[in-house]
Design a protein around this nucleic acid. Structure first.
Length: 154
DNA sequence: GCCAACGTTGGC
DNA sequence: GCCAACGTTGGC
């Protein structure tokens, strides 16, 4: 089983929204980056666990854990001209963008702030992609060692 | 294939 | 609102 981290802007879709969703499940649509797409399409497996991360907000950080309930399949919003994430160059026969389904598994009593993660950047969390300068990936792998250490911070 | 211009992300 | 980082686009 692999571990991942996915970012979301809480003003668009937050862990509260996921908690309120039917079966606490959602499709993780809107990823429009090829590197992240490849992970969604090819690498993320059913049963994998995912840290949910709130970005572009007052207190960025990891807010909970979700479980992958469906593996990569085409993101339908790419074909919808009325949607923000519409991609006029993507064809149905050869979809460009993919998504997975995730279900909320655990909500942390307190979020693990980015600030807290950074405090361990040169030690236990050395190499964590989230902490790399200029990191813009919205989906990224988390090593088992990093995952386990982050759990101790929760 | 190079690279400048441009757009987006995301912390601060 | 600023700005650094960096992916994408498009002219050549």
């Amino acid at each position: 089983m692999k571990h991942w981290l996915m970012k979301t802007e809480p003003s668009t879709f937050s862990i509260d929204d996921l908690e309120r969703a039917p079966k606490r499940t959602t499709h993780w649509d809107g990823v429009r980056n090829y590197q992240a797409r490849n992970m969604l399409r090819d690498e993320i497996a059913k049963g994998d666990r995912v840290f949910l991360y709130h970005s572009s907000c007052d207190v960025p950080g990891i807010v909970g854990i979700a479980k992958v309930t469906r593996e990569g399949y085409p993101d339908h919003t790419q074909f919808d001209p009325s949607h923000d994430h519409y991609d006029p160059d993507s064809r149905r026969e050869e979809p460009r963008w993919y998504m997975v389904d995730v279900a909320l598994e655990k909500r942390f009593a307190r979020e693990i702030k980015l600030e807290t993660l950074r405090a361990h950047a040169r030690r236990e969390l050395d190499g964590l992609l989230l902490l790399r300068a200029g990191n813009r990936l919205s989906v990224m792998p988390v090593s088992e060692a990093h995952w386990n250490f982050i759990l101790t911070l929760a």
